[in-house]
Amino acid sequence: MNARLGPGKRLLTHAILIVLAIPFLLPLVWMVSTSLKEDTQIFPREGEAASPFAIDNLIPSPVAWHNYADALVEVPFLTYLGNTTVLCVLNVVCAVLSSAVVAYGFARLRFRFREPLFVLLLMTMALPAQVTMIPQFMLFRELGWYGTFLPLIVPSCFGVPLFIFLMRQFFLTIPEEMIESARMEGASEWQIFRQLVMPLSIPVLATCALFQFLHTWNDFVGPLIYLNDPNRYTLAYGLQQFLSEYGGRWSHLMAASAMFIAPVLLLFFLTQRTFIQGIATTGSKG
């Protein structure tokens, strides 16, 4: 509607938005605040009742930076970070490349049953993972992959339906004449894909890479099912394990959570446009 508002209404809009923003922001502010507190600031003294919230509770004094260093060692954050990074890099590369090849096939090549196959691909997006989870688990166990990273990487080497869909939509916008003239000059489909279509498609490739990174970074169920060796835990899984073992160490838990969230927020601020546009197109193309 993009209504232009008078000063009174403008003020009211600000007031409403600020009040609404509080519950969205406060948990994160509280997380950072707790992560910098000493236990004496977090827990009430022996025999003392829990007190009402006071605004100066938000500000840690003294500032306990050491919580972050402690969390690095205690969680152990760096081991998990290494594992998560390896999984993220491999998944992003495999998912984006394989999806692009498949998307090019669906967008630019003609073959029998292309349309029904594409509908089938779209339908798999709505299939609850639970339906295939158990046989998949049995398959990977049979292959001897249980406890390794393989079940968390290999499936994304075969194209991700959402990415195939997004890339196909993008590839379709590349003018037919460009591709046709490359064909006339004797370029093979693979060359056209590699040298013409891929370089033109950086925006959509970036969106998919971003989505895959987030998915792998956040994934909890995969590691929960397939990992059993603490040396191979990811951050998401390791953090939950730490919570269930040392539930009361709030300062360390919050420091670890903050460090777990920080790269995602950083990535968001660096790539804001790709981010927002990616989500917007996923929603409206449905």
Binding site: L28, L214, W217, N218, F220, L239, Q240, G247, F268
Partner: peptide, 13 residues
């Protein structure tokens, strides 16, 4: 975009 595991830990607190 906050990972679900992180937000869950924060909510718990």
């Amino acid at each position: 975009i906050v990972p679900v595991v992180a937000s869950s830990v924060v909510f718990m607190w």
